[in-house]
Structures are given as structure tokens and as C-alpha cells.
Design a protein around this nucleic acid. Structure first.
Lengths: 332, 332
DNA sequence: AATTTGCAGGAAAGCGCTTTCCACTCTAGA
DNA sequence: TCTAGAGTGGAAAGCGCTTTCCTGCAAATT
């Protein structure tokens, strides 16, 4: 990547480097209009494009913000990413994206640190047992002036956060269903080390217990459609079709709920005639799905936007709290 | 973002800058193991993290690859992004993401050029009338040694590409349906300036004409779920419910097809009992949807991977061609 | 008329690295 | 024993910018 440099432009315009820099790349000192015009013309004819790396080095700020997600193809994360991207743009920042399908958040953070992003947004659902090296890396990053904001919970000292009240969401969803007169529940859960999944289940359990009930089953599967599907197969195997009737299945997220409904359909059970299913998140395009999924909405894009704002604007370690909103549709 | 610098490490280790650089940041010259060990220790204790900006400046290569998509929350693009991200990682590159919901691809490309990304992947569906300034910008970028690869069609001289045969896909899908004995067709189309949408429609038209038939309607709407929904409302208004029965609706993509099916459901029509619907792409999680959507599969993640490979490996202006695969499900 | 201000453009010192030379030591060949 | 050759580590010149001073000039002040 060679390219026209600022000094070529300066020479062409017959001015110094300093002047060229001042007119082209912003400064509080504005050279005289005549000169400025000459510089602009020279830049235009030569096709000058500022070198962001050099600028970053000189200014010691990069205009980059890093986002780490688990799986960018998951609508949950892609919605958040969309929000982040939108606000990053208004803050005149570029988005560096890392999808860490595995446990390699560490690599991603290290890469972002190397690129000296102005901020890092951690959207990957937190795992219960955080890799201590991740913590070390993030703390060092913060000490060097980098900002980090976590989405989900507020788990890092000195970092901003957009917290999501998964526990209450789980409890309220379940309580509402109890009020509907439901008495038999099962939870289709995600992996035990995923905080989001764990908290939603905790809320579910609390609400069920408060109603004096006992869940008939709890599964532990992947946090995706496949996980929902497998959960149902497991339930069918363990309880049998008949005992599934009349059950209310609370899935740890919408995607799992969708997978569960598909599995139920394949098993010959119909939602909501035979049993009920609810989820969390209210991912996009749920409206196209039938039966409409009863869920707890979290404004995903907005969460992304807020995260970007927290990361990129004035008062830093700020934490914004997001609560879910019960959305009643046909499935439960 | 201040941080520990290489020269601090060098001083701590009692060696020169050159040696420290050679030990820590890769070089064909490997300093003696004793010295190397000292440097590594110093780096470790000081918490050194190489400054990618400075490295980029010195090496004149950034290890960045830019991806521009229309809407990262659209499963079509997020799947591609997932593939790109995965391969970028194996090529040891970081992903710079720009979502240009509007016409501002130009800004995105300019930003990528400023950041001296090693390559730019244009996944945003091409518009029929390309902004000439976009072309200029991309050509300059290429002249400076940047690689660009386009996804969809091969519309830029000197660029790599992963071409998608939308026209054939449209034709084959339709032809297959004709073979099934369908005679009455309608096309639910995307915007007229979106090449993907236009080509799929062209294929559809050709196949219908070849069968000696005439489409009963063609709509022009957004390329999203909403567009599919609106298309159906329009059809209902224009043709009436009765004339919709027995029709085969070919939507310009899966998302539109899903929106269409939802609209039909709301209108009291059932797929596939009353009429049929088919789409394109085979986006993820379609399996959870009922009725299963008949579609033409394009391996989205794989397309992303290929694009990244074309962008980042040996022989450049390479073009890979992707053809769709008919997938029969219940909806048509 | 003599001085101070105010502001302009330019020279040059970094920003944190990589890499080319260079000087040097040590081994091996004659 | 002498010299060529093979390696070593280090000095220093960039990479393309920003920004601090500095100098010089014209306008403003007495």
C-alpha cells in the first residue's frame, strides 16, 4: 500500500508539510484561504488519502473501536453489532470486529490492544469462569487509557457497561405465565458456564419456587437452535409425549425456542394447542414466525448503540441498565 | 493510549532496539537464545504490547481487511461476514466492518483506504448504477496496491470476485416449479437498482417465458421481510384472494419469502395448501420455520470464506464462481 | 515614529516501530 | 599464521503524519 503522501501534496502546492497538514487534516489553526485552496487542489489532483496509521501514531488515538461477539451470524449479536456500528459511525470511529466462536476472546482483545483501539466492547456473553489472562489483558488495556464496556453484566472494574437484567426477565416471564394458570414447567437451558443462560434459569427457578411449584425438567444444551431442538428430543425421551402435553417450556433464548418448536412439530405436538413455549430477546423477524413467539424483548440494536455511546462519549465508566419487556404472542 | 514501548523493553533487557524488535516481532534474523530470553522476560514483566499502527507504518502493510455490507443484521450478510471473519483470522488479519445501510459505501471505502487495509471486500449487493466516485476511489485504492474483491458479480476491473449466478438460480428454480406442473406465477421483487434482485427476476422471467407462460404479477418492494409482506398485501389488493389461490410466488430472497408467508397467513391463506412460495439463499435457521421453505441454497459462510481467501492469498485477481443448489422443502 | 501585538507559515522533533548497513568477533580454510 | 566468510548486535535512517516552537511580517497601539 504505497500512496500519495502529505509531503508530495505540500511540495505540489508549494507549502510546508505543516501547512498542508493543517488544511487537510483538521487543526485549530486555519491557514489563509488562498493557500488552503492551493493545498486542496493539489490534494485533489494527486489523489491524496491520509494515512490513518501515521495519523494514529502522531496523534496517539486511532479512531478505532473493537467489538467482540461470539457468533456474528447469531441474530442476537448481529443486531447488537448493527447498533454499535451505527453509533461508531456517528462518533467517527471504525469498527474492528472479532467473532470468537470459541474461548479465544483473549486473542481478540490482544489484537485490539495491539491496534490501540480507543475502546473495546465485549458483547460475547460472559462465561462464569473468566480466563484470568483475559482479565489481566483488559486491565492492562484500561491502565493504558483504553476504555472497555461490557454488555450483559458489569463484570470489569473500571469499565463501562450495559447491563441486562436476565434474572428478573426470567422471573417475570415465568411469573406471568404462572398467573395465566400454568402449573407445569420445564426449562430449556444453555451451557452452565454462560452467565446469560444461568441467570435466566435462576429467575425461572425462583419464580417457579415462589409459586410453590417444581420444574418437571431442565435441560443443558447449546445456546442455539440446535440446542433447543436437542432439548426437546431429550424431553421426549425422558418424559414421553404424553407428559409433554400441558407443559410450559421456557427456553433460554428465542433461537432455542424456535428450535424447540420445530422439534415439537416434528414430534407431532402443536404449539400452543398441546403445550406452550416462550423465549427471550425478541430477535428480528420473529414476526414472520408462526406461532408468534411469546418472549421478553430486549432492544438489541439499542443496546449496541448505548454500548458504543458509553464507550465513546464523555463520562466514562458509566453503566446503563436495560430491563426486558414482556411480549405476549401466541406461543405461550 | 500510552503503553510500554519497544525501546523501554530494549533498555530493560539491555539490548538495542533492533535486537528487541527481532526477538519479539518476528524477523528472519533470530538473535541468540540467551539474549532472546532476556528480551522476552523484559517484555513480559513490563507488559509490552506491540503497536500495530507503528508496525504498519514501518512495514507498510496493516494486517487489516475491510468488509462492507448493507445490513449486518440481515442473515445473508451476517453469514457472509462470519465466513470472512473466520478466514481473515487464519490469514492473521483483523476485520474492519462497515455497514452501509444507505448509499454511503463511498465513505466506507474511503475510510478503509485511509486505514490502508490490505484488502476490501464489497459484499453490499451491487446497485445497478454505481456511483462513479466509488469506482474512482476503488481504482485508486487498487492502483496503490490494495486488493478488492466483489461478492455477487465481477464488476470491477482488476478486482477478484466471488460471483453468484443469480440469473441461473432464478431460471432453474422457476423451471423446476414449472416441471411440477405449476402454471401461474408471480414474482415478489426487490428494488430495481439492486443487481441481485434484478437478476433473479430476469431468470424467473426467462424461465416463465420459455414455458410459454406469463407472470400474473410482479412487485417491487424492499429486499427484506417487510418487502415480502408488503408485496403480498399489494397482490391481495390487486388480484383478490381468490386469484391468489394456486399461484406460485417466487420471492427475490428468503427473508422476503418469509415475510410473504406471514402476510398470506394473516390474509387467511395457507402455504402450501392454497398456494406456493419459494425463495433464494437458504439462510440459517430456515429449518425452524414451518412450512419448510423451498429455496435455492447459496453457501453463504463459504462464500465469505472464499472471498477472504481470494483477497488475502497468493494469486490475486482470481474469480470464483458459485452456483446455487435447489432445495426442495414443503413450501413449493 | 517607535514599539508592541497578533498571526502567518515553516523547521524540526517526535510518535513506535522495521530494516539496512556497519563494525565486530569467531570459525574455518589455505 | 593469515585471510576470507559467516554471524552477531547496534546505530541510524526511514515510514507519514502532528504539533511545538520559531521567525518574520503587518496591523494596532501610544
Amino acid at each position: 500500500m504505497s500512496a500519495v503522501t502529505l509531503s508530495q501534496v505540500a511540495r505540489e502546492a508549494g507549502v510546508s508539510l505543516a501547512t498542508a497538514s493543517r488544511v487537510l487534516n483538521g487543526s485549530d489553526r486555519r491557514p489563509a484561504e488562498g493557500i488552503a485552496e492551493r493545498v486542496r487542489l493539489a490534494a485533489e489532483t494527486l489523489g491524496y488519502v491520509a494515512n490513518a496509521q501515521a495519523q494514529a501514531l502522531a496523534r496517539s488515538t486511532t479512531g478505532l473501536v473493537g467489538l467482540v461477539v461470539h457468533d456474528i451470524a447469531d441474530p442476537y449479536f448481529s443486531s447488537i453489532a448493527k447498533g454499535v456500528q451505527r453509533r461508531a459511525r456517528t462518533h467517527r470511529h471504525q469498527l474492528l470486529l472479532a467473532a470468537t466462536s470459541g474461548t479465544d476472546q483473549l486473542d481478540a482483545v490482544a489484537a485490539f490492544a495491539a491496534h490501540r483501539t480507543d475502546a473495546i466492547i465485549m458483547a460475547g456473553s460472559r462465561r462464569e469462569d473468566i480466563d484470568p489472562r483475559l482479565l489481566t489483558e483488559l486491565e492492562r488495556y484500561q491502565k493504558n487509557g483504553g476504555r472497555v464496556v461490557t454488555i450483559g453484566q458489569d463484570w470489569l472494574e473500571g469499565a463501562g457497561a450495559v447491563t441486562i437484567d436476565n434474572r428478573s426477565a426470567g422471573a417475570e416471564l415465568t411469573a406471568t405465565l404462572v398467573e395465566d394458570g400454568r402449573t407445569r414447567f420445564a426449562f430449556l437451558g444453555g451451557p452452565d458456564d454462560l452467565t446469560t443462560a444461568v441467570e435466566r434459569r435462576a429467575g425461572f427457578r425462583a419464580a417457579v419456587a415462589r409459586a410453590g411449584l417444581t420444574p418437571e425438567a431442565e435441560t443443558v444444551q447449546g445456546f442455539d437452535s440446535q440446542g433447543g431442538y436437542e432439548s426437546v428430543r431429550q424431553l421426549v425421551a425422558r418424559l414421553g409425549l404424553d407428559r409433554l402435553r400441558g407443559l410450559t417450556l421456557v427456553a433460554a433464548n428465542d433461537i432455542m425456542a424456535l428450535g424447540a418448536i420445530a422439534a415439537l412439530r416434528h414430534a407431532g405436538l402443536h404449539v400452543p394447542d398441546d403445550l406452550w413455549v416462550a423465549g427471550f430477546d425478541d430477535i428480528p423477524n420473529l414476526r414472520d414466525f408462526s406461532p408468534g413467539l411469546t418472549t421478553v424483548r430486549f432492544p438489541l440494536e439499542e443496546i449496541g448503540e448505548t454500548a458504543a455511546d458509553v464507550a465513546l462519549s464523555g463520562d466514562h465508566p458509566r453503566v446503563e441498565h436495560v430491563v426486558g419487556e414482556f411480549v405476549r404472542r401466541e406461543s405461550a
